[in-house]
Amino acid sequence: MPLFTLDEVRKTFTNGEIKEEILKGINLSLKEGEITALVGASGSGKSTLLTIAAGLQPATNGQVVFNGNNIATMNDEQIRQIRASEFGFVFQFAHLVPFLTVEEQLLLMLDVSESKLNKHEQKTEIDRILKLVEMEHRKDAYPSSLSGGEKQRVAIARAIIHKPKILFADEPTASLDSKKSKDVMMLIRELTKTLNITTLMVTHDEEMLSYVDRVVKMSDGLVIEK
C-alpha cells in the first residue's frame, strides 16, 4: 500500500471572473523510501501540486491521502500537527531562523514536532544529524555567518531531525551553484535512504534527476509521464 496518494487532485484559481485550472486531475502515489521528482516547464503546476501534497494549500477537488487519512478533509490544526511531526520541508532558500544558532534551529524543530526525547537524547540526536550533514563544526554559528551551501545543509538537517515520513523539497538546489547542488542532492539521497524517508521533490535541473528513483513529468496541469 502506498504511503501517500493523490487522487484526482484539481486546483482552480479564481481572479475576478477569470477561472484558471492549474491542476486538472492528478493521480500519483508515493512508495515508502522512494525519491520522486516532479519536473516540467514553468506553469505546469508542479509547485502547486507539491504545496497541496504538503498541506500548505487546499485542493479544489480530489483526495490527498497520507497514511490512510484524507488531508483534504482535515481542519487547520490537524494539518499543522501532520506538518510538524510527519513532514519535513526543504525550500529553494534555506529559510533558517536568523536569531537561532545551527544547533538551536534543530532544537526548535524537535520542539515543534513535540519530540519525546529528553534533553540529553535531543543533544545526541542533533550531534548525530549535524555529523551526517557535515555541519557539526558550525553548530554555534548563526545563519548570517554561513555560506549558501552550508545554510541548505542546515535546512536539510532541520527537515529530517524529527524523522518525518515524507520530505517535501521545492527546488532545493535552485539557489546553489552546480557543485553545491550536486553535494546537496547527494546528501538528500544519502539521508533519505539511510532514514527511509519518502521524498517528493520539484526541480528544474535535469542534472539532479540522476539522484532520484522516479521522475514524474507534468505539463499543463496533468501528469504526462511517470
Binding site: 499543522r80 506538518r83 515543534v112
Partner: peptide, 13 residues
C-alpha cells in the same frame, strides 16, 4: 512575515 510563514510551514502554533 517571511519568518512567521516559514515557522508556520514547519508546524509551529
Amino acid at each position: 512575515i517571511g519568518l512567521y510563514g516559514i515557522l508556520k510551514a514547519i508546524g509551529i502554533k
